[in-house]
Design a protein around this nucleic acid. Structure first.
Ligand code: MN
Ligand code: MN
Ligand code: ZN
Ligand code: ZN
Lengths: 157, 157
DNA sequence: CCTTTTATTGAAAATGATTTCCATTAATAG
DNA sequence: CTATTAATGGAAATCATTTTCAATAAAAGG
């Protein structure tokens, strides 16, 4: 069983090696930051969380690494309307549940929710099946977001 | 009944006036372009479709107008992953059906679909109701997109 | 119509997230 | 340990979108 903590090959090393990618400090550190938060971090967010301990890891590398991770399907990239890409781990070793998002258009807060996810998934699956056939479209992924006002922002109305 | 063709107050004039916005040529023309296409146009797309006939309408105005229209809810703004915002009329006088999108990650083609929309809407409504209560979140809008490969791009695999 | 008020506009400059360049560094195969 | 070449960082470039500001033109009132 692949190690999940201290040393030894981590869960993602295999996938990396298999694709010819090298295991580097920057990549370790970036994945580490992502696996330790519930938030939806931007490239700069990650940079600033890393920078004090690893002043030699540049912002450019963060961008490049996030690109690699997104292509590998290890992270999801989102657009929550604040003009910068935000990322979350697709599925850490913790096995976080699949979820969707509530996005507040007032303050840009993002709430993860898993309620009704089962019904959603069921519908999505039927829909995917139908659409794949009708449009000859191979669906790989989906995005569901609700936009509105969080409690705070409703109060400020 | 508000006029929909040649002259007389158009369907959107009321909404505009009510919000203190003025009716201008640029706005007429931009809404006109949007109402005549099935495509999901970017600001520049609109600019180039207008420019030969109205060389005096600047790109800046297109951006500003699209902002106004989006805020009024007359157009929807989308991010289909090609690094530029794309727009479609929310509901022209033609009363286009509510729909969602299939987005090809290979060639960026976007397909409108309305299949299963009724089931989707039913689920969305229940979900909205549940989420509103649980998270005290007032949902105003939703986004559903499927990502994958269109027929052409599957062939190129 | 004519005048006044002020929203709207265009052109140019600024912005800011993301990318690209390129010389240097370091992961990995042998 | 050495060779190969992917990965990196810093500076410069990109490029969609926004801001600035002086000029223009809707709309309201006569
Ligand atoms: Mn999330
Ligand atoms: Mn559409
Ligand atoms: Zn809020
Ligand atoms: Zn395609």
């Amino acid at each position: 069983m692949p190690n999940q903590n201290g040393m030894g090959p981590l869960w993602w090393h295999g996938k990396f090696r298999g694709c010819g990618y090298r295991i580097t400090l920057a990549r370790e550190v970036i994945l580490n930051v992502l696996s330790k938060t519930e938030e939806h971090l931007s490239a700069e967010d990650i940079y600033s969380r890393i920078h004090s301990k690893h002043p030699n890891i540049g912002l450019t590398t963060i961008y490049r690494t996030l690109d690699v991770l997104a292509n590998l399907g290890l992270v999801y990239r989102f657009d929550f309307g604040d003009k910068r890409a935000r990322y979350e781990l697709a599925k850490g070793p913790k096995g976080a549940h699949h979820h969707h998002h509530l996005v507040c258009t007032g303050c840009n807060r993002v709430i993860d929710y898993t309620d009704f996810i089962d019904d959603e998934m069921r519908l999505l699956q039927e829909t995917e099946k139908g659409l794949s056939k009708k449009y000859n479209f191979r669906i790989m992924n989906h995005l569901i977001q609700f936009y509105g006002l969080c409690g705070n922002c409703q109060a400020k109305e």
